[in-house]
Design a protein around this nucleic acid. Structure first.
Length: 235
DNA sequence: AACTTGATTCTCT
DNA sequence: GAGAATCAAGTTT
């Protein structure tokens, strides 16, 4: 009995050929659990990018889950489109989209098999490569370099050319595992307006970090039950 | 209208 | 100063 479990622990990639090798060091919960667990596991991990001869590193302090079974706030809600194609792709790949025609947002595809899903990285605490980030975000305080999904992409130089990349050292963009962060808080997601999912607690934040965006004082006033995540296929 | 940001203006502390 | 409100800035749906 223990041999099967040990084999699974030792060689997770054998049953997950699509999963980037750089993520194999993460605990099994990272890729065995629904998207909320993935979101939870990403907090405290590091977003790393090797680009233009420099390494950028940031500690993830804020992330949001999108997708799953029925999430009207997700790009995947109405099925696959050229834009959100990466949400339906293999887990551990990037999903980068343009927002408001101006900025970009970085996500990690993390849906269960046959389910679309992605985790939006909303803020990281700059750890390494501050000089390159300051160049891309000239005139900003260090606190503001990566506080917000659009700012994060600007500081990292992430754009549509980074969409669909496997997160790995080979691609130059990956997640470095970290011990489970304690004391995270779940809140409603930011910027959903009148969306019926506006009150779902799918935003995970390190409340002790100044590098996360502020949590709104007033939450959506019409709570609706979150749907149970299941492995049932979309549509 | 949209999973945002930056600048401005207002309020309150 | 901090925080809320308002507005405008491309592109895609």
């Amino acid at each position: 009995m223990s041999s099967a479990a040990e084999a699974g622990q030792q060689r997770p990639a054998a049953r997950r050929p699509d999963f980037p090798e750089a993520l194999e060091a993460l605990p099994p919960a990272f890729y065995e659990r629904p998207i909320l667990q993935v979101t939870r596991a990403l907090l405290g991990c590091r977003l790393v990018r090797d680009h233009a001869g420099r390494r950028l590193v940031g500690r993830i302090v804020e992330a949001e889950a999108y997708g799953g079974l029925v999430d009207p706030a997700s790009h995947s809600f109405r099925g696959t489109t050229p834009r959100c194609r990466s949400m339906f792709g293999p887990r551990g790949h990037s999903y980068v989209y343009r927002i408001y025609g101006i900025h970009h947002c970085m996500n990690i595809a993390a849906g269960d098999p046959e389910l679309a899903g992605a985790v939006l990285l909303r803020a990281v605490e700059p750890v390494e490569g501050l000089a390159a980030m300051r160049e891309r975000r000239a005139g900003r305080e260090d606190l503001e370099l990566c506080r917000g999904p659009g700012r994060l992409c600007a500081a990292y130089g992430l754009d549509l050319s980074c969409d669909g990349l496997p997160l790995s050292r080979r691609s130059g963009l990956w997640i470095a595992a970290s011990p489970r962060l304690r004391g995270v808080r779940w809140t409603p997601r930011v910027g959903l307006g009148a969306n019926p999912a506006a009150s779902w607690l799918w935003r995970c934040v390190d409340p002790g970090s100044k590098y996360a965006t502020p949590t709104p004082r007033r939450w959506p006033s019409t709570p609706r039950p979150q749907p149970a995540l299941s492995r049932a296929p979309l549509r």
